[in-house]
Design a protein around this nucleic acid. Structure first.
Lengths: 345, 345
DNA sequence: CAGTTTTTTCGCAGCGCTACGAGCTTAACG
DNA sequence: CGTTAAGCTCGTAGCGCTGCGAAAAAACTG
């Protein structure tokens, strides 16, 4: 017999059985009370609660999760937390799911499938209740891990074929088409595209492709030019891109931007050069950021369903967690906000 | 003897002992290999690794955390994820700590101590390796839980007395003073303040108080007016605040903004009204956001050490986790970027 | 009031992993 | 060639909680 009790407990943490002892009940009852208070009789419940209070008991989620083989954790992966557009979706999800007692584990992929794979791998080892990913492009290994895991998966912010499971988003192709049509309707004939990360951001790419397709349809020609600014301080990058565009295609009369920050940068540069917006050049952005209605002139843009996506994803998560096995595909649409930057006289 | 084996395992999850069996070693060795690969001999390590690969083994963090009584989780609480300024700090921390195998659990307090308390309570039941909070104002219960928990605590983005433990930030009072001095140096005499959430955002309040103090010192008078825009779409709110200010104090010749988004809104409105910036009114913001150098005119502002805070906090966390019990208090300073919006002729 | 049903409480066997000490090899040394 | 040291590997005892089935208590029956 090995009698030297191997002391492993470092901290004298208050455990459930401490509470049980004080309340003079069994640990099972405390556990039950914590999980389903109604199934414990009134007086006992009160005894337990007061024991919890006096001891300052904090349940150990790890132990619970291990025993129950489930956590109340939702893994969420967005391309970048620096992008205000995703912040707002995540914020909404946080509110909706937090209210139901779920924790969000937030990670970012930096627009790279390999990064995403690493994050998903880590998150899965928390055995989350669900996973929420951005977009439909994932590495083969990511897809494999996810489908092996029997964790509900929700993809958001995009529409397309072969979703892993549930899909909540809108069509970026349609956004591009709408942007192009809008400028053409405003009388533009030579339309350029200024975006960022077109090489890695699948959704940006789709918007660009959508506008290109629409331009072919409507005008029978492509973008006069497509400029990719790369990441970084976008407003500044757009300054240069715009200047560059003006020198290579001085007859440009419309620009579609990958996002509103780029448009803001170009707007400033235009004003500095005395180019009149929208009369010389009409502009439309994407994102409807905080400032988009306050630029000079106010910026026409696309408002993606940021908060709506967050809310709908949260609903889907809750349904899936409760076992409703409906794999859906929800198109939340978007809104084109026509403002002065594209209102030509 | 209870012979009916109580099947509890729902999913046939691959466990460490499955790997051990396939690699023909003991589970302990697999565990050791996973934690300290160098302490396992080469050939055995390879056998184990290939077993892991063929089985697609994903470790169960819950079990590990329970056994080791620690997680590799860092709880981070910021006021709001919508605020780009915090996003950038969190992003940096994520990068630095993620590289060391730590997970960030991100929560927000919505600028309310009660919310913060709830988040901290939840996070603590994850027994995190460390907690990172924003600011120094916490509810009494929050402080109690934290100090009872023996989890290292780092407060960031602020400087002050009575930190819980370690403190990394800069002085918002000094920021306010610097803003005021800058405008006074530029020749302003009647300076107003336009901010948001002054009632709840302790740091915004401090900046306002700092500029007020400096104005008293330098000009012997206070802000001509302090406007609190409230939350929401800030750029738009600033439009109105600015208009309001102009009608009540048409002789205003300098404005200090609580953040750059507010300044952007006012800048637009000023231009619309034909008010020349900086000649009629000089402006300075706070935050140095992406667009601040591209407004018209470029916006003078304060660059807080966003990324620096993230990095330093990450370093502190790592040190504290490794047992270095140095409770420090680091002032990271800030930078005043003098641009055209405050450069009077 | 004995017999039956319903409600409440309890005991126990894990969940999958880590830490510790012991056992086994192999290398190094006098 | 025996002895000691060093390097690897393995067995075992939990970590704190949950969920099952069973026991105990309470509430109904006729």
């Amino acid at each position: 017999m090995n009698n030297k009790s191997r002391q492993r407990r470092s901290t004298q943490r208050v455990t459930m059985s401490d509470v049980a002892k004080l309340a003079d009940v069994s640990a099972s009852t405390v556990s039950l009370y914590l999980r389903k208070p109604d199934e414990v009789s009134g007086p006992l419940g009160q005894r337990i609660q007061s024991a919890i209070n006096t001891l300052g008991y904090v349940p150990n989620l790890m132990a619970g999760a291990l025993a129950a083989a489930r956590t109340r954790v939702i893994g969420v992966v967005v391309p970048s937390m620096l992008n205000a557009i995703f912040a707002s979706t995540v914020n909404t999800m946080q509110k909706a799911l937090g209210a139901q007692g779920y924790q969000l584990l937030l990670g970012h992929s930096d627009y790279a499938e390999a990064e995403e794979e690493a994050v998903v791998r880590t998150f899965l080892s928390w055995s989350p209740s669900a996973m929420v990913l951005t977009g439909l492009s994932h590495s083969r290994e990511t897809r494999r891990m996810l489908s092996n895991s029997d964790v509900p998966v929700i993809e958001m912010w995009e529409l397309g074929s072969n979703p892993l499971d549930t899909l909540v988003g809108f069509s970026h192709l349609d956004v591009g088409r709408a942007q192009a049509r809008h400028l053409v309707d405003a009388g533009c004939q030579r339309i350029a595209f200024i975006g960022t990360r077109l090489n890695v951001d699948e959704r940006a790419k789709q918007r660009c492709a959508g506008s290109e397709a629409a331009l072919m349809d409507l005008l029978g020609k492509r973008h006069t030019r497509v400029i990719d600014c790369g990441p970084g301080r976008m407003a500044e990058a757009a300054n240069h891109a715009f200047a560059d565009l003006l020198s290579s295609h001085p007859d440009t009369d419309g620009i579609i931007f990958g996002n509103d920050m780029l448009a803001l940068g170009a707007l400033g540069e235009a004003q500095r050069r005395g180019i009149r917006i929208p009369d010389d050049i009409a502009m439309i952005g994407f994102g409807d950021m905080d400032f988009s209605n306050c630029t000079l002139p106010p910026l026409s843009t696309i408002r993606p369903p940021r908060e709506e996506i967050g809310n709908v994803v949260a609903q889907c998560v809750l349904q899936r967690v409760q076992g409703h096995t409906q794999e859906t595909c929800l198109d939340l649409g978007f809104e084109l906000l026509s403002r002065a930057s594209s209102l030509r006289h």
